[in-house]
């Protein structure tokens, strides 16, 4: 199923510059309903309060790491089906394996290009 351009997307990253970059790319890809959160905890609160169709998250964040947020999403009956794309500088094989085991939908390593993000989104919503 192709991605709905009107779905609400949550961008989670502790760095304001990265949130802005990811939002800009998503906007250029045709997604305009974009929200942001600074850490996993804030993201979970937002996800529980509203309906989101997609989450793009960093790994390393204060308060709650992206991987812990992912586990919490997958453990929550109401949220577990939301696709989660990890965008992270954690380029170790172990990290990727951990994310896959936790139920990540796809994984982008920083620095990345808009094409890479588009390719991953297409794969998630094919």
């Amino acid at each position: 199923m192709p991605a709905d351009p009107n779905m609400k997307i949550l961008v989670v990253d502790d760095m304001s510059t990265m949130r802005r970059i990811v939002k800009n790319i998503l906007k250029q890809l045709g997604f305009n309903n974009l929200e942001e959160a600074e850490n996993g905890q804030e993201a979970l609160t937002k996800l529980k309060a509203d309906t989101y169709g997609f989450v793009v998250s960093d790994w390393n964040m204060p308060v709650m790491m992206g991987i812990d947020m992912l586990r919490a999403i997958r453990a929550d009956e109401a949220l577990k089906k939301i696709p989660v794309l990890m965008v992270t500088a954690e380029a170790q094989k172990e990290n990727l394996m951990e994310a896959v085991q936790a139920g990540v939908s796809n994984y982008v390593v920083k620095p990345f290009t808009a094409e890479t993000m588009q390719e991953k989104i297409n794969k998630i919503f094919k």
Binding site: M18, I21, N24, I25, Q28, A89, K110, P111, T113
Partner: peptide, 11 residues
Amino acid sequence: LDIMTALSFQD
């Protein structure tokens, strides 16, 4: 868009 993504160096 390439400039925008290149700015991820800051992160």
